[in-house]
């Protein structure tokens, strides 16, 4: 019997998320995450801070990475997640969250895969980049979602 680890290979692309975050979603996330910065709540408050308008909290972009991993690699657990914020993510703009498996390791801590992760806009501009180390679920039941 083989599990997900054996079925995915280096170069495997995770099922991309295509979405447009609404201003309300961003506000709700910031409120739930107890992130009081005005820039997460309205264009007006963001402009007072010198920004072009309301922006998505960095943690929310990282949450999108987590969602991408969870939906593409069912049953996985994240061991490490990092992000580099290259440009502000704004609500109301279509984004694509995608990733690819870049390495696999069998370790005494389990079967691990390394992924590159990206949030980009419709023109392919990379706004947030990241990496993740995830442990895949053991056993034959889990199946990777194909892009």
């Amino acid at each position: 019997m083989t599990g997900l680890f054996e079925h995915i290979d280096v170069g495997h692309e995770l099922q991309p998320l295509r979405l447009t975050l609404s201003s309300e979603q961003v506000r709700a996330y910031a409120q739930a995450a107890n992130m009081p910065g005005g820039r997460f709540f309205s264009d007006e408050a963001a402009r007072q801070e010198g920004l072009p308008g309301q922006i998505v909290p960095g943690n929310m972009s990282m949450a999108l990475f987590s969602r991408l991993l969870a939906e593409s690699l069912p049953g996985m657990s994240i061991k490490h997640l990092s992000a580099t914020f290259r440009a502000p993510v704004r609500p109301g703009q279509p984004i694509v969250v995608h990733g690819v498996v870049i390495e696999k390791h069998c370790t005494d801590r389990g079967d691990l895969v390394e992924c590159d992760l990206v949030v980009e806009n419709a023109d392919g501009e990379r706004w947030v980049t990241g990496t993740a180390t995830v442990q895949l679920a053991a056993g034959p039941t889990a199946t990777a979602r194909e892009p």
Binding site: V10, G11, S82, T84, I102, E103, E114, G130, T131
Partner: peptide, 17 residues
């Protein structure tokens, strides 16, 4: 400081691609 890429993994990737 803003990169997460090990040199050896670059080489493995280029070999594969």
């Amino acid at each position: 400081e803003d990169s997460r890429a090990p040199v050896e993994t670059y080489l493995k990737w280029l070999t594969r691609k």
